[in-house]
Amino acid sequence: MHKSLSFRAAVVSLVLLTLFLGIWEGLNSAVKDKAPLSEYELLMGGASQEARVPPPSDVFRLAMEELGNPFYDAGPNDKGIGIQLGYSLYRVLTGFFLAALIALPIGFLVGMSPLMHKALNPFIQVLRPISPLAWMPLALFIIKDSETSAIFVIFICSIWPMLINTAFGVANVRQDWVNVARTHELGPLQTAFQVILPAAAPTILTGMRISIGIAWLVIVAAEMLVGGTGIGYYVWNEWNNLDLASVIFSIVMIGMVGMLLDIALGSISRLVEYEE
């Protein structure tokens, strides 16, 4: 019965997708003017001047083309989708890992020490709700490099969920397990690595998963601002080119890569999960 459930779910998904694409296709490609041209149209050269969303068949054709050669580089404004996604992934992962490097130790500290929790909490609460893009002008001014500024923006947006989840996970390790460490005379480092870290690992990984999701959301906007390379820049550039098929194609690609990032983090967190 399990197999049949996933099978039936797949069928429903496919039906919904076909329905959606069918309606989209039908609405956007059926505009064929059979009526004699009006005076205005004649003046305008006879072409249909109404901009339309390209039908899925166009997007699909473009996607095949782009994915067939994802790494071509024909100048600053014409790079393959693979290169653009590569730039974005590089920025996201660099910012994310730098954030992890800072957030995990500080989160540990905040979780372990009530003093540090009380002392650092006001800063965290004020800094956390700031839209990462608000940092952009300051970052550009201080760093003076758009590439690094984009990485900084990713860094600043990834840090909070990781820090808060780490602190929460560490602070809420069951007292029984801490007592086990204490009665076995484990030192502070041994306690941290043998008891607290494995106990808090699932919560920490959840924080990292949230972080990478947010980082992937933010990179698109950041790259629209800083320009040059990356999937965000690509979307904006194709909008300026009025190439809506490319815009739609890149939207789908952003979704796909975001999903893959989440799956990757999800499978890592499955490694550290435990059942009580």
């Binding site: 007592n179 494995p198 690992a201």
Partner: peptide, 10 residues
Amino acid sequence: VFQNYSLLPW
């Protein structure tokens, strides 16, 4: 020996 066993579940 604690009442709730206190084994490390991982």
